[in-house]
Nucleic acid binder design. Structure first.
Lengths: 144, 144
DNA sequence: CCATGCTCATTAGCTAGGCTAAGTATCGTG
DNA sequence: CACGATACTTAGCCTAGCTAATGAGCATGG
């Protein structure tokens, strides 16, 4: 118990530090002022899901609804996402990527990941495999 | 080549999404309005290193110097960090945690990690091991 | 021995991203 | 059909990040 508890605690710290530095590093590697981290992530989720309500998107992205309103607002201003009324429920809204959104997404996704992909390319296959499995575990923990 | 490149690219995306959601989740799990994520991280680095200049701390934390000035400012206001003049170079400043800083750090570190440690406790030993190795790799990639 | 240029830290000013609380519209039900 | 619940937005706040500019101190070449 003690051992396992200790392991979990020191892992928590190590992991937290690794994540914060890593994500700052990835954020810095932004290709000329375009989609931000959060905007790209939201757009990704929208494309994967096809269409979502703001609430659903906020849940997927792990933010509060007002935060998602802001992010979607930016994307809508740029014509990358469209809001359409829900067919039966007047309170709800359907969000979906526009054609332009999909196009811009593909471009920036690539540019955004370029630096990171280059770094990952230099890892061994075993290391990449470790990261693949870690990513799955992190998603699960984040969900829980 | 193609295969490995593809692997690195899809891993980049998966990893990015996992990290952004995970870090948002961890940020949310803040115990009663105290040290923020960034403040705690800076304080951790300071304690590990003993003492650093603002520039050095900014480098470790992967932020720009003005950003670190702000973070340290908050910590200093609360008496957790002290600025002392550099003995020989009048331009530089030495940052170190105060006794109170060390005490508060220990408390909040524990509270902050509580939720995360609890989640990690529920993983299998193999999964935790994967995360330990992943954290090491991420630190290395962030550094590179 | 001092003028000039570099480095360190800070200040100023901006944007994004996150939150809570409150407001508004719509739904659904007793 | 009134009233509570739900969905989204608005308002207002704070932190975290950035770049550009400022000011202070160092170091060096003439």
């Amino acid at each position: 118990m003690t051992t396992e508890r200790t392991t979990a605690e020191s892992l928590a710290k190590t992991l937290r530090d690794a994540i914060i530095r890593f994500s700052r590093r990835v954020r810095q590697a932004r290709p000329v002022g375009d989609l931000t981290f959060s905007q790209l992530s939201a757009l990704t989720s929208l494309q994967l899901a096809g269409a979502l309500t703001p609430r659903e998107l906020a849940d997927v992205e792990r933010v509060q609804p007002p935060t998602m309103t802001k992010i979607v607002g930016k994307l809508e201003e740029r014509g990358l996402v469209a809001r359409t009324p829900h067919p039966t429920d007047g309170r709800q809204v359907i969000l979906a990527a526009t054609d332009e959104g999909r196009a811009v997404y593909a471009q920036h996704e690539r540019a955004r990941n370029e630096w990171l992909a280059a770094q990952l390319d230099r890892l061994t296959p075993e290391e990449r495999d470790t990261l693949v499995r870690a990513a799955e575990i992190l998603q699960r923990v984040a969900r829980g």
